[in-house]
Design a protein around this nucleic acid. Sequence first.
DNA 1: CTGTTAGCGCATTCAC
DNA 2: GTGAATGCGCTAACAG
Lengths: 343, 343
Amino acid sequence: MPARLSEVAALAGVHPATASRALNEATRNKVSADTVLKVRRAAEQLNYSPNPAARSLVTNRTSTVGVIIGDLTVPLFPPLLRGVDDVTSAAGYTALIVNTDNDWSRELARIAALQARRVDGLIVATATSGDQADPRIWSSVAPTVFVVRAPADPLAPTVLSDDSMGVHLAVEHLVAQGHRRIAHVAGPPEISTATARLRAYREALFERGIEVDPALVTTMDSISADAGTEALGRLLDSGAGVTAVLAFNDIVAYGCYRAVRQRGLRCPEDISIVGYSDMNGADLVAPPLTTVHVDHQAMGAEAARMLLGMLSDPGARPPHSVRLPVSLTVRESTAPPRQGVPR
Amino acid sequence: MPARLSEVAALAGVHPATASRALNEATRNKVSADTVLKVRRAAEQLNYSPNPAARSLVTNRTSTVGVIIGDLTVPLFPPLLRGVDDVTSAAGYTALIVNTDNDWSRELARIAALQARRVDGLIVATATSGDQADPRIWSSVAPTVFVVRAPADPLAPTVLSDDSMGVHLAVEHLVAQGHRRIAHVAGPPEISTATARLRAYREALFERGIEVDPALVTTMDSISADAGTEALGRLLDSGAGVTAVLAFNDIVAYGCYRAVRQRGLRCPEDISIVGYSDMNGADLVAPPLTTVHVDHQAMGAEAARMLLGMLSDPGARPPHSVRLPVSLTVRESTAPPRQGVPR
DNA sequence: CTGTTAGCGCATTCAC
DNA sequence: GTGAATGCGCTAACAG
C-alpha cells in the first residue's frame, strides 16, 4: 500500500493541504519555494503517488480516455494505439482500449462500460460516414475525437489521412511508368474511405487525360483478400486489358496477387499492383508491395492531442478536423507495362 | 453527470446504505427481495452506475488489471489481448494495456504508471527466462500472471503454449512426407521459447531415429525476416543437403522464403518450410504457410482467468502454471522432397 | 432486514 | 503562504 498524502505532509512538517498544493502543478505558486522543496523530497522518500480514486472523487475527472476500435488484429490499429498512448501517457492520462469486434451491440455495451468508468474523453476509430449511428451516441458520453473513419457529422472533430493525396500519388506513379489501363478494386460504399478513394481515382485519371472507363472498376461487398481475388479475377477475365491495379488496401492487394497468379500471370511483369496502408508485413510478401504509406501512429497522436486540447479547455469551440498527408512507398509490385498488345 | 446512489435511494424510498446493499451482488441477500426490486427499478430508471472512484476509495480495489506487452504490432498480441479482454470485461474488470516497446527503462516507467493507477493485478507478456529481471519487480506491484514468455522464477503462475508439442507435430508432418534432412532456424537462446523449440526439435528427430546433425541448425542473433533469410541462406550454401526447414516463427519463415527464392529454388518443390505461430496473414503469403497454430486468444483468456482467480481468493496459494496445446495447420509450403540427390 | 455513523484520500473552499 | 474544515460518492461496521 503506497504512502498517503498525510504521511508526506507529516514527514515534511506541513499540513496535508499545503502538501497537496506543493505537489500540484497548478497550485504550486501558492506555496513558498522552500516548502515545495521539502514536500517534494518527502514525497520522493516515501515513494508517494496520489490515489487516483481519491483525486478523481473530488476533481470529478479520471484522467482516462476511452479508445474504441473495431478489431485489434487489423494492422492499422496497433500503431494508431501507439500514437495515442504516447501522447496520453505523457500527459498523465491512461487509455482504456476497447475492442468492438465491429459489432454494434457489442460497441454499445463497451461504450456503456467506458461511461461507467467515467472516461474524460473518447477517441473513436469505428465510425463510418454511411453509418446509421448518430455521433451523439459517443459525444453524449464525453468529448470525442474521431479518427481513421469519418463520422456522419462532418463538423465533429476528426483526424483522417488524405485519401485523395494517396490515390493521386499511386496513380501518378503508375502513369509515370506508362500505364493507361489502371483498374481499381474498390471497397463497399458504406466505408467513407472507399468512396473517397474511388472519387480520387477518377479525378486522378481525369486530370491526366486518361479515359475513366467504368469497366475498370469493381466494387467489393466486403473488404478481404478473397473479395479482392474474386473482384480482380472478374476484371482480368473480362478482357478489359488492364495493366495495373490500385487495390482498396493492402489486404485486398494480396488477394489481387492471388488472382494474378491463378491466371498464370506475373506481378509486376504482367500486372502492376498498388496497395494502400503499408501495413506491417507489406515488405515481406512476394513481390514486396508498392503501397500508399499511411502514418497511423501520427494519426493516433494527433487525435490524442486534439482530444487533450478539448479537455483542457472545455469552453473553447471544438477544433478543426485535420487530414494528414501520406506518401508512396515504392517496392517491387509495380513496373512498366509489357510492350505490345495488352491483354 | 450520472445519478448518485443517494438519488436512487431517495427514489426507492430507502436509505443509501440499503440501496448499496441491494445493488451489490455479495450483499444482496441481506436485503428483502421486495426492496431489491424497488431499488433496481429506481436505479434503472435513473440510469445509475456506481462511481468507480468512490467505490475504489473504500474497497481499496480498482477492478483494473494491467497488461504489459512488448510491441503491439507483433501479431501474436492482438488476439492475446482479445482473450484477456473477453474474460476481464465479463467480470467487470478493465484492462489497462501498456506497450513497453521492448525497452526495459520504458517498461519500468509503465509499471510505475500502473502502480500509480492501483491496478489489482498484472498480466505480463514480456518476461524472458534469460532475463536479468526479477519477477518480484512485477509481483511487488500486484498479483501477477505471466503469459507467452517464461519468467525466471519457474514457480510463478504462467500460461505458455506447448512448444514441445508444436515442434513434434511439425517434425512428424515433415518426416511423414519423407523428409530426413530437416533444418532448424533457431531463435536466440535468451528467448525461452527458442531454447524450448530447439530442444524439442532434437528430441523429435531422435525419437524418429533420424540423425541429429548440428550442421542443420543455425541460430539467429535476433528474430526477424532478414535474420531468417541470412541464416537459411548460410545453411543452403553449406551444401548440407536440406530438404525441409522448421523456422523459429512465421516471420522467420517469410525470411526463409526469400532465401529459397534468391537461390532460384522453389518452395515447396525444392524446400519445404514450416513456420510457428500461425500469425495473421500466414494464409495470404505465397505459398500459404504450413505452421504450428498457437491459440493466443485462449492463452490470454486463460491468463486472465488465472489472475482473476488469484484476486478473488488472495489467501489461496498461487495456481499451477499451464501449458496449452497447439495444433498444426497444414497449408502449401510443405511437400514431399524431390527424388534423387538432395542438394 | 434496515437506518445511522464513519471514513476511504484527496482538493478546495475559507480563515488567518 | 499556511492551517482548518468540508465534502466528493460510496461501502462497512454497528445498532436497532
